[in-house]
Design a protein around this nucleic acid. Structure first.
Lengths: 238, 238
DNA sequence: TCGCTAGTAGAACAGCGTTCGTCAACGAAC
DNA sequence: GTTCGTTGACGAACGCTGTTCTACTAGCGA
């Protein structure tokens, strides 16, 4: 895939001046090369230079295929979103389907570094994001939720999911960088336990509850809050 | 406050070698100088060089008072959080107080660029953030919500508020950069209206609802979802 | 009065996103 | 079959970033 994979030439040949055969650098190849870097190093670790090096070329070459890094991240985000499995909406199981959809979205995003943070800066309008949005709208509408709450939930829910994915991705990155992995919450809880009850009378009694649960449970709790809130918007179909 | 405010010296004087009188650069002065830059340019616009220039010195001088930019942002975040007015908890009005607290938090954060994004990367443990957390815990506990949901809500709610503040701050920054201000949602809505009903049968019928409401209403809706969810966790006091 | 410490700051390092200008290769046209 | 124009590739450079090294100096305690 990269230039290094081309068949080697006899070492006595004069190397083809300055450029080899016209390499066919494509947008798809750029995205494919970007994905592992994104997973391993996150958005900040994915630099144009690093990516170009991986492709055996210079950073300037990328700009023939991608307007800038922002656009590259947009493309990557939509590609990742495209890997979220979407259910066939079944009104009877809206709660389960809704929860499963966003739980998988959360996992897929977290699996790709902190890519979710590009969606905090702009409404994602890529084709895959749109497909996911339509699915969510169908599920909630089928559940009997009026159009306006559904429309606004299209803002609030992905916002929460993306924010949680970003937060957790940063935690995962720090874990990979040597810091303890899931003990993070435990340490924070221990810190809370040392709090002077004079300053924090109630919170200092809650050290156990504050340390309870990992990323998955905490995300599930927040998502469940939103589901319960949405449930309360259900009105009888007319 | 800055070096530029010192009384001018006669131009024929040899400037005091290389360093003027020992300026008393303090952490407080650094934070004070950082705030306007943060408001105007956001976290990315607040560079160590820019800040040092504002203080009439070089970037290296800042590192005697602040470990690095991350710590500086932590300090700024907690300072901003300290400006959120905290209510005297009154169990009878928990819903109103909870909503008011986080609405004001949202506004205060948005008023200071995208500072909220530092809280997406780490649990804020500054003194002011802790005070705010304790207040929220008291309010929710007083409402009759068990300790575990309260503890986890301490994760979910600030996460949503911060994410919304970041998203809106980016929008505000783009608005300041020439792009239309609140018409953003309208444009997105118009785009949605052009969607082929073949691809998005339901969403294409919701252009009006999708365009309805500004940042404030949308945030309020999401916060209300969380409140309704929390409400459903209330159990009778024993 | 001396010597030490702690704050100041210029210069530099390695990295970033992006742009400029050159150059070679291909498809089309004559 | 040869030439021309277009287009992708890409080395070099620009201006920026956070941070560190190092020299220096001013003030304070002894």
């Amino acid at each position: 895939m990269t230039a290094a994979d081309l068949p080697p030439e006899p070492p006595w040949w004069t190397p083809p001046k300055n450029s080899g055969p016209r390499r066919s650098l494509t947008r798809a190849a750029i995205l494919a090369a970007a994905r592992p870097i994104l997973r391993a190093e996150g958005v900040d670790g994915l630099s144009m230079r690093r990516l170009a090096t991986e492709l055996g070329t210079g950073p300037a070459s990328l700009y023939a295929h991608v307007a800038n890094k922002d656009e590259l991240l947009d493309l990557l985000f939509d590609q990742v979103v495209g890997e979220i499995a979407l259910p066939e909406p079944d009104p009877a199981r809206w709660r389960e389907q809704f929860t499963a959809l966003w739980t998988e979205a959360h996992e897929t995003l977290m699996d790709n570094g902190d890519i979710a943070r590009v969606s905090l800066g702009k409404v994602p309008l890529g084709p895959n994001a749109m497909r996911a949005a339509e699915t969510m709208v169908v599920i909630l509408t089928g559940a009997g939720i009026p159009a306006q709450p559904v429309a606004w939930a299209l803002d609030a829910v992905p916002l929460y999911v993306a924010a949680s994915a970003v937060e957790n991705a940063i935690g995962v990155a720090q874990a990979r960088a040597g810091n303890p992995p899931e003990e993070h919450y435990a340490r924070v809880g221990a810190y809370f336990a040392t709090l002077s009850p004079a300053h924090y009378p109630l919170m200092s009694t809650m050290a156990r509850e504050l340390a309870e649960g990992g990323r998955t449970e905490r995300f599930a709790f927040g998502l469940d809050l939103l589901v319960r809130g949405l449930e309360s918007h259900i009105t009888p179909r007319r």
